[in-house]
Simulated assay, not measured.
Amino acid sequence: MRVLAFLLALLAAWGQPSASAAATSRLPRIQHVFIIILENKGFDETFGPGSSAVYLSQTLTQQGQLLRQYYATGHVSLDNYVSLVSGQAPNPDTQADCQIYTDFVGAPGLDADGQAVGQGCVYSSFVPTIADQLAAAHRTWKGYMQDMGNSPTAPATCRHPALNSQDDTQSARDGDQYAARHNPFVYFHSIIDSPSCDRNVVPLTELPTDLERVSTTPNYVFITPNLCEDGHDAPCVDGRPGGLASADLFLQEWVPQIVGSRAFRHRGLLIVTFDEGEVSGSGFDSSACCNEASGPNTGAPGVTGPGGGRVGAVLVSRFIRPGSVNDTPYNHYALLRSIEDLFHLGHVGYAAQDGLAPFGNDVFNCYPRGLCR
């Protein structure tokens, strides 16, 4: 019955067309999307004058486009990752980072907006994700998680807490700074109940080998650094500075490998953004854009406001003019919708929201007029 319910939900999602044929025909034929998610920094700190992320704020922005009005969808952390891959809005447990790894409990199906109604952490198998959509369309995907394979007692792939147990990855450990809450794929039964989870949710150390050939590079690549190198911790448990300084070093190591790969050069798109803005202090930001809906399970996705704050994003592709700047408002749901459109998929969750604008020729401003490089 669970399999049947999931298939029906997925068919329903596919029944919501991604865009008109004319609209999708105007998009470049992107074949490989790479997403890197960093942690807890607002736009001004990252991209403003004096940013300690020099590689991100200066080098990468000159290679691609800076989205100055890109917003996260909630606080504290996990709810943003869930939104990025499923379009599901926050609920009180995901807003609290699911300290206890519990099943989502609620209505036995999705509401009219594609939302699961209830509360909890691990969504039922009838809640579709971009991973499920890609697999159904015979495209490939992988989540690459730094430090996932570093624990001597935990699985090296598809790593997550046991159901109804304490999440012991909430704090970094020396030599193992993996955080399950920054790995959205392990919060969906459609993924963790499948044998393919061990093939698709893997340590970051597997990425260089996969990048060696176009045929082994997934169509959809989701990269999560560890708690030090995503900028979350500062200082880090191993003595490194953390924050933007360590996040910038991570990008300097991994971005050249990605953009230098044949898969990226062959119709690739790189997206670097943050899960959410600041969650404490004077920089706390719970602003939103794009008429973000609060969802059925919480009145305030940003705890004290409608969203997760303005974080910005950088996009790099042969179809994007280097050094360009874009002030069109986008958020995590819009990013999900844009990726679905690039792969000619339906829309899931709030990616299907009426009036939500996906990336168009404002982003892909070197297409179809020819390459800018």
Rank of each mutant, 00 (worst) to 15 (best):
1 M>G: 14
2 R>D: 15
8 L>F: 14
12 A>C: 13
12 A>W: 15
16 Q>D: 12
17 P>C: 09
20 S>F: 01
24 T>M: 12
27 L>F: 02
30 I>E: 03
30 I>A: 05
31 Q>A: 10
33 V>S: 00
34 F>G: 05
36 I>L: 05
37 I>G: 06
38 L>R: 05
39 E>M: 02
42 G>C: 11
43 F>D: 01
45 E>G: 05
47 F>A: 04
48 G>E: 05
49 P>T: 12
50 G>A: 12
50 G>E: 07
52 S>H: 08
55 Y>S: 11
59 T>Q: 06
61 T>S: 02
62 Q>R: 15
73 T>N: 15
73 T>Q: 11
74 G>P: 06
76 V>E: 05
86 S>F: 04
89 A>Q: 04
93 D>R: 07
94 T>E: 03
94 T>W: 02
99 Q>K: 07
112 A>W: 04
113 D>K: 12
114 G>T: 02
123 Y>S: 09
127 V>H: 00
130 I>C: 10
131 A>T: 07
134 L>D: 08
135 A>T: 12
135 A>D: 09
136 A>M: 06
137 A>T: 01
138 H>T: 06
141 W>M: 06
142 K>D: 02
142 K>R: 14
147 D>L: 04
147 D>N: 13
148 M>E: 03
151 S>A: 06
151 S>K: 14
152 P>W: 14
165 S>P: 01
166 Q>W: 07
167 D>E: 11
167 D>Y: 07
171 S>M: 09
174 D>R: 13
174 D>H: 07
179 A>M: 05
182 H>E: 02
183 N>E: 08
186 V>P: 00
188 F>R: 01
189 H>K: 15
191 I>H: 01
193 D>E: 14
196 S>V: 09
197 C>Q: 02
198 D>P: 01
204 L>D: 00
204 L>G: 04
206 E>C: 01
208 P>K: 15
209 T>S: 13
211 L>N: 10
212 E>L: 14
212 E>Y: 01
214 V>M: 04
214 V>S: 08
220 Y>K: 11
227 L>I: 02
227 L>Q: 14
230 D>N: 15
230 D>F: 02
237 V>C: 02
238 D>T: 12
238 D>C: 12
239 G>T: 15
241 P>N: 07
242 G>D: 04
247 A>S: 13
247 A>C: 08
251 L>C: 04
253 E>R: 13
255 V>L: 02
259 V>P: 04
262 R>G: 03
266 H>K: 09
268 G>K: 06
269 L>V: 12
272 V>L: 02
276 E>C: 02
279 V>D: 03
284 F>L: 13
285 D>N: 11
289 C>E: 10
291 N>T: 11
294 S>Y: 00
295 G>A: 07
297 N>H: 03
305 G>I: 06
306 P>Y: 13
306 P>F: 04
309 G>D: 03
313 A>F: 06
320 I>F: 12
324 S>T: 15
324 S>P: 07
325 V>P: 05
325 V>C: 06
327 D>G: 11
330 Y>S: 11
332 H>S: 10
333 Y>W: 09
336 L>G: 00
337 R>L: 04
337 R>I: 02
338 S>F: 10
341 D>Q: 11
344 H>K: 04
344 H>T: 14
347 H>T: 05
348 V>D: 13
351 A>P: 03
352 A>W: 00
353 Q>S: 09
353 Q>E: 05
355 G>V: 07
355 G>S: 09
361 N>H: 11
364 F>N: 07
365 N>K: 13
370 G>D: 11
371 L>C: 12
